[in-house]
Write a protein that binds this DNA or RNA. Structure first.
Lengths: 334, 334
DNA sequence: TTGTAAGCGTTATCAG
DNA sequence: CTGATAACGCTTACAA
């Protein structure tokens, strides 16, 4: 591989000049600029990432901490990872993976070895020790999700409260009066107060005079069967269903039909899930999407902005993305 | 952050000694070893990744090239990514993500900037230009999947032919004589000869005197409905189903019941899919799993082995992992 | 067994 | 506008 020095020699200039035409950090005459550019082309020069990191103390790498549970939110997580990587590349950054297994230790490691310049945290838990690790390590960090106490941490997330509200309003707007919210598994409410609780709060707030019950539900077929059975037995007049746990969706749809409830003729269903999931059922689901790509993009933008424009004063903000509901075939007027 | 020099000063030894204590590349007396270790502890020293990469020309980073289509094989891909990262960490490597959008350019980039020492390719296509890019760049590469012409490239994959065989043998062993293979989408067969064709070949070879049809099928509800309808109309005696496209599974199960075919009483179903998918239906599916974690682990091991033991002679091997079938509730004797 | 010193390929400061 | 040159923090011959 050709080095900066090779290029400098080939172009008949000093090494520093080559560096400056590349970085643009000082003005260079058009003539030498051109000459250097040609030499770069000719030698197919690519700067050495390690050398650059050492000299500039900037690795141009972002670390992405994967969720604690590998089996949950998989499609959303994948979309976030791709969005983060794509956007990071646009700013000249590469993305490094940190597994849950490494935990907060991984964050300390990439920070103190200068392997990464900043960290993106996902699947934020109620009391997440990775947050503290990031803050103590002094690396810029942004969370995709909102912890219980976001003290000094930048967060981006869907506005789940508004999302819940939107679902209820859509159903009540269609004339539905007896609603059931099939939520995340019970454990999620105890462990990860964040998004699940905010959704529930939004839903309750919007229900108003409508009749609403909340039923936590695990993702297994048996759990869904039990939950649905109970809902239909206890409140046979139910005509509006809101679903949050995306694993619940496939079994729910097939169970509804075996219970003789047609969607959307007998019961309307609206889901909080990625579009991909909403479009794989029959009928396709009216849903509030999880804006995975946008979350990833914004996380990167926040980080890069903070690192370049050296502002350290804007942190600790929680940025909620307004939800948007897409009407598909699973909801209809009562 | 403390540097090597700081540690050396603190321990009263030369910088090189500290380096050697860390790398073990030459023997150091137990006494100084201990002293250095204590200083490292005391100063909480962590080596600078960039400096190390520059001096040793080893980044200790593996690049993982993500699939071309972000929406396919998502759970498998996620599992591979986690397995790769975990195993890489065990060898002291970090993992960098390369998106499909960057394509072969990304591979050239990480290779020529020395950002990564080796590359793992996933979702291998028939004529995949990333393979050539890797080989021209001179980085060690291993493919998870097998291209049409694996010339000189190391590959690891499930033995799909054997997997297909296993499915057929399981069904025929249970007395089923009329079988249908619901495969991947038509486009997959034209574009990615690899695993889909190998599966089909294995299935056909094992069918023997049994009656078998192959029906490609897309993942949408409509496509599954059409495919199943056709199968049941044309060959109502069908009692054995083999499914490869995992997106087909949820709709298929609910469609079977609406057609009045009970699983496994009327029809047995065996799937080629991750365990996670097989366990989310009712009844749970008898399946040949996609050994995602093992694929990831072996890919890393191959790479690390080749890089450390400098052997350049073992490349170009295709390593197929023998399939294993797990009997669950979706298959029974005819 | 240990120390000295020459790189590794950039960036950035200081002159000119 | 451009050239020298000293870092950056580590590895690895080469000496001792």
């Amino acid at each position: 591989m050709a080095t900066l020095a090779d290029v400098a020699r080939h172009a008949g200039v000093a090494a520093s000049t080559v560096s400056y035409v590349l970085s643009g950090k000082r003005s260079v005459s058009q003539a030498t600029k051109d000459r250097v550019r040609r030499s770069i082309e000719a030698l197919n020069y690519q700067p050495h990432a390690g050398a650059r990191a050492l000299a500039s103390s900037q690795a141009h790498v972002l670390a992405l901490a994967l969720p604690l549970r590998g089996d949950l939110y998989v499609p959303v997580m994948m979309e976030i990872a791709i969005a983060v990587t794509t956007r990071a590349r646009a700013f000249g950054y590469d993305v490094l993976l940190l597994t849950a297994a490494e935990g907060s230790e991984g964050i300390r490691r990439v920070a103190s070895t200068a392997r990464a310049d900043a960290v993106i945290l996902t699947d934020i838990g109620l009391a997440d020790d990775r947050i503290e690790a990031a803050q103590n390590s002094g690396v810029p960090a942004v969370a995709i999700g909102v912890p219980a106490a976001p003290a000094g941490l930048d967060c981006v997330d869907l506005d789940f409260a508004a999302a819940g509200r939107l679902c209820v309003e859509h159903l009540t707007g269609l004339g539905h009066r007896v609603l059931a919210f099939i939520g995340e598994a019970e454990s999620v409410y105890t462990r990860r107060t964040g998004f699940a609780e905010r959704t529930l709060r939004g839903i309750r707030a919007a229900a108003g005079d409508a009749d609403l019950v909340h039923r936590p539900c695990a993702g297994s077929y048996e759990a869904v069967a039990a939950t649905l059975k109970k809902i239909l037995e206890e409140r046979p007049q139910t005509t509006g269903l809101i679903v949050q746990n995306e694993a619940v969706i496939p079994p729910l749809m097939s169970l509804l039909s075996s219970h003789g409830r047609a969607v959307p003729d007998d019961v309307s269903v609206v889901a909080l899930c990625p579009d991909q999931v909403a479009e794989q059922t029959a009928p396709r689901l009216t849903s509030v999407t999880i804006p995975a790509a946008e979350l990833g993009h914004r996380a990167v933008e926040l980080l890069v902005h903070r690192m370049t424009s050296g502002e350290d004063g804007t942190e600790g903000k929680v940025r909620l993305i307004p939800p948007s509901l897409t009407v598909r075939g699973s909801t209809a007027a009562r």
